[in-house]
């Protein structure tokens, strides 16, 4: 690299670290931030012994299990469905049948159309009893230095 070319590169780097130029820079390297998460989606899969959480979080869960393995959930909207989407700002309360051996899978959806899977978490839940239950799910880790986890559409 000639001395002039090296000086230009250093100038661009300095400019990219200030104000709006920094954002454009990060986008340019395809990293993720929390603001990229548009919605979260909760799915509950039965028979946790057959669920490999490490493998499940590599792709969209709906593509890995037949529909019969997903528990019917009733979310804040009141409709029963296989998955409940909610805002990333907080948790969600769902109604379901009591039972044992579940895997709670929560997926982060991007804002695109169709949305992409940005990240997911998988949590084993031994039992859900009648009445009130509380599940603290494993966190979803987004890769700040990489793009979407998968191009699949997580919506069920």
């Amino acid at each position: 690299m000639s001395p002039r070319r090296c000086a230009l590169t250093c100038l661009l780097a300095v400019l990219g670290c200030d104000g709006d130029g920094a954002a454009r820079f990060e986008m340019g390297v395809a990293g993720l931030s929390l603001a990229d998460v548009n919605e979260l989606q909760l799915s509950v899969v039965t028979d946790r012994k057959t669920v490999d959480c490490a493998a499940v979080t590599e792709g969209c869960v709906k593509d890995q299990f037949p529909a019969s393995r997903f528990v019917e959930l009733t979310g804040p909207g009141g409709a029963a469905q296989k998955a409940v989407r909610f805002s990333p700002d907080g948790g969600v309360a769902v109604s379901m049948s009591p039972g044992r051996d579940f895997a709670f899978v929560i997926e982060a959806l991007g804002a695109g159309s169709p949305p992409q899977l940005l990240g997911s978490s998988c949590t084993y839940v031994e039992a859900v009893s009648a009445g009130s239950n509380r599940v603290s799910a494993n966190p979803i880790f987004l890769k700040s230095d990489a793009g979407a986890l998968s191009s699949c559409d997580p919506r069920q």
């Binding site: 990240g119 009648a130 009130s132 509380r134």
Partner: peptide, 16 residues
């Protein structure tokens, strides 16, 4: 009668 269960799910999204 199937008695329903209510599950409150809390989750955090973190940057890795």
């Amino acid at each position: 009668q199937k008695q329903g269960a209510t599950v409150q799910v809390d989750v955090m999204v973190k940057l890795q």
